[in-house]
């Protein structure tokens, strides 16, 4: 079981890092999601010292029970990963709305062109009220 976990975690992490290095905001997010799931699997794997039936009461007889703590931790980490992903997607969407592109090369080119054109003055401030919703997921924390 352990080598299998190790291989899967390694592959997930590797794919995640590969995607992180792509010049495309959306792929970067996908890469981070993979890395976060590699981390979640690591948490699960850290409880593999004991395995057995699901740790939900009532427990049957004297059968061994799997470690409930790692499962609780993974669940919380999943929720945090969910919140974080939605923040990232919102940010990515913000970039897309402003620039009509999520390609980093293109964005950099545009920015360089703008900077060369003039000392960019402060863009008008517009409301980004959607951001205040996302962090509240984290209030899950108390579980």
């Amino acid at each position: 079981m352990n080598p299998l976990f190790a291989i899967v975690i390694g592959v997930l992490f590797g794919c995640g890092v590969f995607l992180l290095l792509k010049p495309d905001l959306f792929r970067v997010i996908a890469g981070l999601v993979l890395v976060s799931n590699a981390a979640n699997l690591t948490l699960m794997a850290s409880g593999l010292t004991r395995s057995g039936q699901a740790p939900i009461a009532p427990v049957e007889g004297n059968e061994p029970v799997a470690d409930p703590l790692v499962q609780a931790m993974t669940l919380t980490a999943l929720v945090i990963g969910f919140a974080v992903t939605s923040v990232l997607l919102a940010l990515c969407y913000g970039v897309y709305r402003a620039r009509r592109s999520v390609d980093l090369d293109e964005l950099s080119r545009e920015e360089a062109a703008e900077a060369a054109a003039l000392e960019a003055d402060e863009p008008p401030l517009d409301e980004e009220s959607e951001y205040d919703q996302q962090d509240e997921f984290d209030e899950e924390i108390v579980r």
């Binding site: 939605s86 997607l89 919102a90 969407y93 009220s129 959607e130 919703q133 996302q134 509240e136 997921f137 209030e139 899950e140 579980r143």
Partner: peptide
């Protein structure tokens, strides 16, 4: 938790 997750997710879907 259910209301929070449902409400926040729908709010994001709506906003996007």
């Amino acid at each position: 938790v259910f209301l929070l997750v449902l409400g926040a997710s729908v709010a994001i879907i709506d906003a996007i």
